[in-house]
Simulated assay, not measured.
Amino acid sequence: MLLVKAGYEVEARPESVPAILARDGVVLIQQGSVAEVRDLLEGWTVPVDHPHQVADGLTVITPRFDSEVADNGAGFTDLPLPPHTDRSLHEQPPGVLATLMLAPARAGGTATLVDGARVLTILRRRAEDAAIARLRLKTTAGQLGPPVVEFTSGHARIRYRDDRIAHPQSTDGHTDLVADLRRLITETVRSLHLSEGDGYLVHNHRFLHGRTAFTGDRSLARFLARVNSDHPYAWLNRGFSIASS
């Protein structure tokens, strides 16, 4: 398995992965296997369970429902998935997410990534942190969920989705700020073609991920985890580092 620093095309050592996530938020995987990705995560992370998992922290994402599904099963269709945070509505979303392509789609199914740190940097030039902090996820049932951006001392954590489950809303009526957020995500999205054995490892509190619609039996392994509490980079579970405004 080959690990690559995204944007640098430089090979990364496995032991440097936590530091790279802290700095860049993403590491690309090439020519990997499920066993190798699990080994990569072992020792510095703990698996995070998911209702659809086939093993601790491991879910195989493949079409199993029809396109009319109207809940969290949308990931298990051939529909597009807009950029999102995994487990965004949960109290503690996993800090680490990895994917590995098992079988590419016949057509489509391109992976998409958005660096939330870049989006937030631009958004903070246009709005005060207090206004950004009042952006909340609102479910289709009308319930207000967690903040889209959680600010803590020196850190921020993004929880984002914009689909049939929930969408961003400003609790003080700044619809222009919501529009800015959506536009920035669209403008900064990066497409990533994944062949068999390719994937990515991201800081789930920083990077949004998704895919385009596809045809065929695309199959992807997804790993959810959090950083061990005694690890030097355990702070990744709280978010990513930001400069004060």
Rank of each mutant, 00 (worst) to 15 (best):
A156W: 00
H155Q: 12
K138R: 15
A156V: 02
D163I: 00
G145Y: 12
Y160E: 12
Y160V: 05
S170W: 00
L144M: 04
I165A: 05
D163M: 05
S153F: 15
A166F: 09
L137S: 13
R136F: 15
S153R: 05
T140F: 01
S153M: 11
V149P: 01
V149S: 00
G142L: 05
A156F: 00
K138M: 15
R136Y: 15
H155M: 13
F151K: 00
P168F: 01
Y160D: 10
R164E: 01
Q143A: 06
V148A: 10
T140S: 07
Q143L: 05
G145H: 13
I158E: 07
T139H: 06
L144E: 11
G154Y: 05
Y160T: 10
D163K: 03
Q143S: 11
S170A: 08
P168H: 02
H167Q: 07
V149T: 08
I158K: 08
G154A: 06
S170E: 01
G154C: 14
H155C: 06
R159Q: 04
R159F: 02
R157H: 03
T171A: 08
A166E: 01
A141M: 02
S153Q: 13
Q169I: 08
G145S: 08
R164M: 11
H155A: 15
D162S: 10
V149A: 05
L144D: 04
I165W: 10
T139E: 02
T152F: 10
R164Q: 15
D163A: 03
R161C: 12
P147F: 07
I165P: 07
A141R: 09
H155N: 09
P147T: 05
L137H: 13
G145N: 13
G154S: 01
F151D: 07
R159D: 14
Y160H: 14
T140I: 08
T139G: 15
Q143V: 10
L144A: 06
A156K: 00
G142K: 12
S153P: 09
T171V: 12
R159A: 09
P168A: 01
G145I: 09
R136H: 14
R164G: 13
A166C: 07
P146M: 04
G142A: 04
R161M: 14
D162T: 11
P146G: 12
G142C: 08
V148H: 08
P146K: 06
F151L: 13
R157W: 01
R136T: 13
D162M: 10
T171S: 06
P147N: 12
V149C: 03
I158C: 12
